[in-house]
Amino acid sequence: MHRSLHGGRHELGQNFLTHTPTIKHLTTLVAATEGSIIEIGAGGGALTRSLATLNRPLTAIELDEHRAKALSASLPGITVVRADALATRYDQPVVVGNIPFHLTTPLLRRLLTTGSWNDGIVLTQWEVARKRAGVGGGTLLTAQSWPWFEFSLSGRVAATSFTPRPSVDGGILVMRRRAQPLVPQHERKAYADFTHAMFTGRGQGLTGIVQRYLRCSAAASRNVVGLAGVSRSALPRDLSAPQWASLWREVKRES
């Protein structure tokens, strides 16, 4: 295949998924959703061909113009769009893809802050998938998104499942937009600023961080944290989605 205008495989950060059971598992996860599908980074089309068997409207996004052309020719029943995944708006109900590992964070940020999709099923680095799902403690990005999305893990994918083989294993992250957000949409920016302050703030545990944030007494801070249903010894990484929403409500009330 000719070299892409955007560079070769290394420049595009592509590690193609070749493990048939994983492809089938991803397809099964998508089959449990409803509506049209958009695939991020179709590459050689291994996952695309499997998704096409679901007989649902399918759009494949691929940056490499040669691969996009070949995929369009081999699968005339789907829509192939040559585009940058970071510049694509994801408004179809279902998003799926084997995300280039080096683009994981910016792509997840785009998915979680733009578009109107309902279900997202992405294959990315194992540690990133674990962290985004809140396994072993939440992260800032997860906390900022939790009021509007649910996250779960659906399996670890060995590095040997890709060609060429990456240096780390992959993980399947399942994301679903909440039918009823835990925080109103119009408060999203203020809430994001709040969670950022909690993760970066100084203080003895969460109560100390809240105290500095509110510029209140230690007793008032303990009261806020207690009313939110959070342990006084908790750290920001320890909170669940409902606890973040509850803490936000109590902090707003105290502000």
Score class of each variant (00 low, 15 high):
residue 4 S to C: 05
residue 6 H to T: 12
residue 7 G to I: 07
residue 8 G to C: 01
residue 8 G to F: 01
residue 9 R to Q: 07
residue 12 L to G: 05
residue 14 Q to G: 08
residue 15 N to L: 10
residue 18 T to S: 13
residue 25 H to W: 12
residue 27 T to N: 06
residue 28 T to R: 15
residue 29 L to D: 00
residue 30 V to E: 02
residue 31 A to H: 14
residue 32 A to Y: 09
residue 33 T to I: 11
residue 34 E to L: 10
residue 34 E to D: 14
residue 37 I to Q: 00
residue 39 E to T: 05
residue 41 G to A: 06
residue 43 G to T: 12
residue 45 G to L: 08
residue 45 G to K: 09
residue 46 A to K: 13
residue 47 L to Q: 03
residue 50 S to Q: 14
residue 50 S to P: 05
residue 52 A to I: 12
residue 54 L to S: 08
residue 57 P to R: 11
residue 59 T to D: 00
residue 62 E to M: 10
residue 63 L to Y: 10
residue 67 R to H: 09
residue 69 K to N: 12
residue 73 A to H: 14
residue 73 A to L: 14
residue 74 S to V: 13
residue 75 L to V: 11
residue 77 G to R: 12
residue 78 I to A: 02
residue 79 T to R: 15
residue 80 V to F: 11
residue 80 V to L: 03
residue 87 A to D: 11
residue 88 T to V: 13
residue 88 T to W: 07
residue 91 D to H: 12
residue 95 V to R: 06
residue 96 V to Y: 01
residue 98 N to K: 08
residue 101 F to A: 04
residue 102 H to P: 05
residue 106 P to Q: 07
residue 110 R to A: 03
residue 115 G to A: 02
residue 121 I to V: 10
residue 121 I to D: 04
residue 121 I to C: 01
residue 122 V to F: 05
residue 122 V to G: 03
residue 128 V to S: 01
residue 129 A to M: 04
residue 133 A to M: 05
residue 138 G to P: 07
residue 141 L to C: 03
residue 146 W to C: 05
residue 146 W to F: 10
residue 149 F to N: 04
residue 150 E to K: 14
residue 152 S to V: 09
residue 152 S to C: 12
residue 152 S to R: 15
residue 155 G to Q: 04
residue 155 G to A: 05
residue 157 V to G: 08
residue 157 V to H: 11
residue 158 A to W: 10
residue 159 A to S: 14
residue 163 T to D: 13
residue 163 T to H: 15
residue 164 P to R: 12
residue 164 P to W: 09
residue 167 S to W: 10
residue 169 D to T: 11
residue 174 V to T: 11
residue 174 V to R: 12
residue 178 R to E: 02
residue 178 R to D: 00
residue 181 P to D: 00
residue 181 P to W: 07
residue 181 P to C: 04
residue 183 V to I: 15
residue 183 V to M: 06
residue 183 V to G: 02
residue 184 P to M: 03
residue 188 R to Y: 01
residue 189 K to I: 14
residue 189 K to T: 14
residue 190 A to T: 08
residue 191 Y to E: 03
residue 192 A to G: 13
residue 192 A to D: 06
residue 196 H to N: 12
residue 198 M to R: 03
residue 200 T to V: 09
residue 200 T to N: 14
residue 203 G to Y: 08
residue 204 Q to W: 10
residue 204 Q to S: 15
residue 208 G to R: 11
residue 208 G to D: 04
residue 212 R to H: 15
residue 213 Y to C: 04
residue 214 L to W: 13
residue 214 L to M: 05
residue 216 C to Y: 10
residue 220 A to E: 14
residue 222 R to K: 15
residue 222 R to P: 02
residue 227 L to S: 13
residue 227 L to I: 09
residue 228 A to I: 06
residue 230 V to Y: 04
residue 230 V to K: 04
residue 230 V to C: 05
residue 231 S to H: 13
residue 233 S to F: 13
residue 235 L to K: 15
residue 235 L to N: 07
residue 240 S to H: 07
residue 240 S to E: 00
residue 241 A to F: 03
residue 242 P to K: 09
residue 243 Q to A: 00
residue 248 W to A: 03
residue 248 W to I: 02
residue 248 W to K: 06
residue 248 W to H: 04
residue 249 R to T: 14
residue 250 E to N: 10
residue 251 V to M: 00
residue 253 R to V: 08
residue 255 S to E: 14
residue 255 S to F: 12
